[in-house]
Structures are given as C-alpha cells and as structure tokens.
C-alpha cells in the first residue's frame, strides 16, 4: 500500500496547477523511491516529468509499484478543498480503485477526507537519455516568466541564442520585434537573483512561446529555473524542489521555415 504524508498541501497544489493545462489524465507512478509522473501533451510537442522523492514526504511508505491513473481536473477539484498549510496524506491500496486524500489542519482538529476514482490510463512513455547540454542557464524563474509573457505579446515563437556574451531571447512579429539579453550575474546578498550561464558551445534554437508561458506556471515552486539547451534536441526547463525532487518540462524545438 501507499501512504505518503506531505507537510504542506501547497506543494502538490502548485505542481498540479502548473501541469493541468498541459496534460489531463496521467499516471502517478509510486514506488519506494517516491512518486513520479511523465506525460506528453496531446500534440506530443511538450512533456512533463515530475519526481517527488520519498524524502519529500514524512513518512513515506510504498511496498510495491502502484500506478495511480488520475484525471488532473478531478484532482484539482479535490486539492482546492485543502488549505495551503494543511498536512496532506495520500493513501492507496495495492490494487486500488481510488486514491484517498486526507487534509489535516495543523492548527485545529479539522480532518477532511476525499476519495478520487482512478482511471486505467495506457500512457506512452518516452525514454529521455542523459544529455550533456551545450548550454545551461540558471536564472530567476520570475524573470523567465516575464520574458516569455512579454515576448508573447509580439510573436508566437522565441529564439534562444546562447553565446559567451550571454543569452538572448528574441522574437519578431507583425507589429515589430523585441529581445532581452541576460549576462552572468552574481548577487551575493540575493543569490536567488543570480544568472549563471554554463556554455560549452554556442546554441540557437526556436521555441513556441505558448508552451513556455505554460511551463512558467511552475514559477511559484522555485525561485530559480534552469534551461538546458543543445542544438537539435528538446529544451529542458527545470524547477528544482527540495530533497532532489523536481518538475521538468521538455519542449521540442521549432524547425524549418
């Protein structure tokens, strides 16, 4: 059986909120290392990969592999019933029909309990090889969100060009063009504002802004976001969570004209 207790319901609320517009029905794969999810959007252009390590829960117990097929709209409805600071416990039997969610207030004696019916989801699973990326950019997640939103007002796509000079986000559309260039930057007092660019070779790729803006819904999960690029492979956008847990998005580049 599965029993996984999160100190704050907020974490799962934010994760589900960040991915629910991209993917609808997904398997939450539970085993002794934690709870993982991998799902592609309908157009197979973007992929979500979530890992909540067992260390992110206290306690965490999962005796055997269990796949919880959950509709994210249903999960969102139930998670709305939890206060952000509630303690959340996920429970399921070994061959479950439902997943049980318990919300406990740390400050009062309220205990809420919900069951969500599970679905049988036959999901395509992609193998993503370990990649040595040509460019890795760490930057404030709010900054990345602002750049994507700003450029989307002008164009449907953005080119991300990384050289030793810095990283340039550029777009052009019907009304004109725009670009934002960032250079490496270290703020000793506020390291969350750092921009770090690790480059082994120059990279230039073009991506759909619609998807990037969607990924940025995860900005509330982490102060920093990591962008990993190599020519001719999908972009990795990573939001690191505590205990080595993460929320990753992969986006295929746009090709041709």
């Amino acid at each position: 059986m599965l029993e996984a207790r999160l100190e704050q319901a907020n974490l799962l609320k934010k994760v589900v909120d960040a991915i629910k517009d991209l993917v609808q029905d997904c398997n939450f794969d539970c085993n002794d290392s934690g709870i993982a999810l991998q799902a592609m959007d309908n157009s197979h252009v973007a992929l979500v990969s979530m890992m909540l390590k067992s260390e992110s829960f206290s306690p965490f117990r999962c005796d055997r592999n269990i796949a919880l097929g959950i509709n994210l709209t249903s999960l969102t409805k139930v998670l709305r019933c939890a206060a952000n600071e509630d303690i959340l416990t996920l429970k399921a039997e070994d061959a479950p029909d439902v997943v049980n969610l318990v919300f406990e207030s740390a400050e009062s004696d309220r205990l809420s309990e919900y069951d969500i019916k599970l679905m049988d989801i036959d999901q395509e699973h992609l193998g993503i090889p370990e990649t040595e990326y040509a460019a890795t950019i760490s930057m404030p997640s709010a900054e990345f969100q602002k750049i994507c939103r700003d450029l989307m007002a002008l164009s449907e796509s953005v080119s991300i060009e990384c050289t030793k000079e810095g990283v340039k986000f550029a777009c052009s559309g019907d009304i004109g063009s725009g670009s934002v260039t960032l250079r490496s930057h270290t703020n000793v007092e506020k390291p969350q504002l750092n921009v770090e660019i690790d480059l082994s070779e120059p990279v230039a790729l073009t991506f759909s802004l619609k998807y990037l803006v969607n990924f940025c819904k995860a900005s509330g999960l982490s102060e920093q976001v990591r962008l990993c690029l190599s020519n001719e492979v999908p972009l990795l956008v990573e939001y690191a969570l505590s205990n080595n847990s993460y929320l990753r998005f992969y986006l295929a580049p746009k090709i041709g004209d």
Binding site: M40, S43, H44, V45, A46, L47, E124, H125, L126, G127, I128, P129, E156, S157, T206, S208, V233, P234, Y250, A252, P253, K254, I255, G256, D257
Partner: peptide, 14 residues
C-alpha cells in the same frame, strides 16, 4: 510559420 517538431522524433517510446 515555422513547423513545430514532435518529441517522438528525439526520444523513443519505452
């Protein structure tokens, strides 16, 4: 507009 590629062209199904 540029053609939007597909993840399946980079990663294989497992």
């Amino acid at each position: 507009t540029p053609f939007q590629n597909n993840l399946g062209e980079y990663y294989t199904l497992v």
